[in-house]
Amino acid sequence: MTSNDIPFDTGALMSTVLEGILYGFSVLMFMGTMWSLTYKQHVRDINRPIFIVAILLLLLSTVHIVVNIIRVENGLVKYRDTYPGGPRAFFADVSEETYVIKHALYVLQTLLADGVVIYRCYVVWQSVWVIILPSMLWCSVAVTGVTAVYSVSQSSSSTSVFAQDLAMWIMGFLISTIAANASSSGLMAYRIWTIERNITRHRAGPKSTMMPIMHVLMDAAVLYSVALFTALVCYVCSNNGDVIMVDLAVPIISIAFYMVLIRIAVNRQHNYLPNVGTNVETRQSGNVQQYPMQPLQVHISQFTSSDNTSAHEIGNERPSGRRSPTWTLVK
């Protein structure tokens, strides 16, 4: 550790505090996600896989911050005077139980989140060939992540996290997950852009219905990629800042996932035209009478473009076949 590097005990405390702040935001966004998935929805219409993934992300991030709190309490309070070398040596020990557990949780959450991004890419493209490269990168994430956690668990207490035998697996894991996320998000953004360009020719109004989804997808991808890239740079430079960034990546994964679902729900609500109520005045025998008109609700369930992908399908994240536009008039 260089003289201007962050001490291990300071880094552990900083990461726990900052992770707690982001975890609070992720809990609020989880509540918004549950609302977006269940609001005015029948039980049979709820997207159960996405519902389960949202809950799993919350559980993993919750367990992760609990383990981090226990780790800080052990290093700074419980074993402060009994651990050889003090708190700094405790937090530098990569074979310590809480260190291994929290990184195993991080690997699981990364695999879950990257898998969802790849699935979204498949839903948008409706082609297995498109997701071959992201799927291979996902397998690389799984192999390098599991191997890194196993190698850490088998290391001695004196092994540095920047040791060469650990570095190749950790760097491989970070590079693989950045590439998997960037490739899947880029493919989705390109597909949505081409669909929007095609349906714009047939849309009467100038307002875009799918570009907001593309924007939030890219925002989530950039947020996640920047956090991982920062962790990678810190690790390459043998800086303890990677400890902070890796811990922050756990709630950031959940936040990025939730913000996409919430934006899709908002976009879906805006696709419903509001009720139009007005009064019609008629003159009869010199008297003015008003007759309230019944609300007219026009529900456009979806618009299917010529390339067989619709905005409604992207919102539901369920692959389906070709459908025709449906109009429902409710008096």
Rank of each mutant, 00 (worst) to 15 (best):
N308P: 01
W35E: 08
I52M: 04
V250H: 00
N198F: 00
S183G: 01
G315D: 08
D242N: 15
H64V: 00
I213R: 01
V141Y: 01
M136G: 08
G24E: 05
S3W: 07
M218V: 15
G315K: 05
M31A: 14
T304R: 02
S127G: 10
A189W: 03
I175E: 13
F91E: 02
K78R: 08
I244V: 15
G86E: 04
L187Q: 04
Y83A: 07
Y119Q: 11
K331W: 10
L37G: 04
Q126K: 15
D5M: 12
A204G: 10
A54T: 08
T10F: 13
A311G: 15
I69L: 05
Y39H: 08
M245V: 08
T177W: 00
A113C: 06
V128W: 12
R263I: 05
M259C: 10
Y106C: 03
N271D: 14
L248I: 14
S3V: 12
S225F: 07
A54V: 05
G286N: 13
A189G: 09
P206S: 14
A182C: 10
S15H: 04
C237E: 13
S324N: 12
T177L: 06
R197I: 03
T62H: 03
I6S: 09
L13P: 01
R263S: 13
V94D: 01
W138K: 07
I199N: 02
F303Q: 07
P134E: 06
E196R: 03
N181Y: 04
L59C: 11
G205W: 09
I170K: 08
P295H: 05
A12Q: 15
R263D: 08
L137S: 02
S36H: 02
N308S: 15
R71D: 09
R201K: 15
A256P: 07
H299C: 06
L111C: 14
V226L: 12
V161G: 15
Q284K: 08
D45I: 00
Q289G: 02
V67F: 05
P7C: 14
I46F: 00
T328Y: 10
T200L: 06
